[in-house]
């Protein structure tokens, strides 16, 4: 009888340890071309306004539920070749060596280093405002950037379960809008095209990552 009890206690203790281990991993969120993330850019030049969009986004983010902003880190990558602007020739130009050079630099990457926010934790079913601090790499050139963001942690809705079978129990949504100066990243617009393409783009990124 004593042996049986000891065995039962052992199993319970083991399960508790396993549970703690899974809780420690609860802050890892992944997005992999899941179609629920989006990146857009807008160029507003005197002659032409251009909008580009893609959903080919990967992300691996670490937001520990207990101290989400103090511990936030991770990486968001966008496939350069995934951008579409609605005109085939323009898409080809965008991928060409003169512009984003998709062949040599297939990804635009943002490495998240930390998040600063007035809030210290996520609020239930709400977005929290903050600033993401990190390094943005475009065409092989990396610069420090600060991006105003809204971020929220939500339970995976039942209706989404079928569409995202790989998702765990929670969704992390992070959205940021910021300006990117192409010349800062070595993308030089020929003066002839200056009226068609703006040096400064407005970029918006919405990432939906699921806990694993």
């Amino acid at each position: 009888m004593k042996r049986k009890m000891a065995a039962t206690l052992g199993i319970v203790a083991g399960l508790a340890v396993l549970n703690l281990a899974s809780f420690a991993d609860a802050g890892k969120f992944v997005a992999k071309h899941n179609g629920w993330s989006r990146a857009t850019f807008e160029s507003d030049a005197p002659i032409e306004s251009i909008v580009g969009v893609t959903t080919r986004i990967d992300a691996a983010l670490d937001f520990d539920a207990a101290k989400p902003f103090a511990t936030a880190k991770g990486k968001i990558s966008i496939d350069v070749a995934g951008f579409r602007t609605g005109i085939k020739m323009r898409d080809e130009h965008l991928r060409s060596k003169m512009w984003l050079d998709a062949e040599s630099h297939p990804k635009i990457e943002f490495e998240l280093i930390k998040v600063s926010s007035d809030a210290s934790a996520f609020e239930p079913m709400k977005y929290v405002k903050g600033t993401a601090h990190g390094k943005l790499t475009i065409k092989g050139k990396t610069l420090d950037v600060e991006v105003p963001i809204k971020v929220g942690l939500f339970p995976v809705p039942e209706t989404m379960r079928k569409m995202m079978p790989e998702a765990g129990t929670e969704l992390l949504r992070i959205s940021g809008r910021f300006k990117v100066k192409l010349s800062d990243y070595g993308v030089m617009i020929p003066s002839m095209l200056g009226m068609k393409v703006s040096d400064e783009l407005t970029v918006r990124v919405d990432v939906t990552a699921a806990s694993m």
């Binding site: 079913m125 709400k126 929220g152 939500f154 809705p157 209706t159 989404m160 969704l171 939906t208």
Partner: peptide, 8 residues
């Protein structure tokens, strides 16, 4: 649609 499902 996602915002609707999340209630945001």
């Amino acid at each position: 649609e996602l915002d609707r499902m999340l209630g945001t």
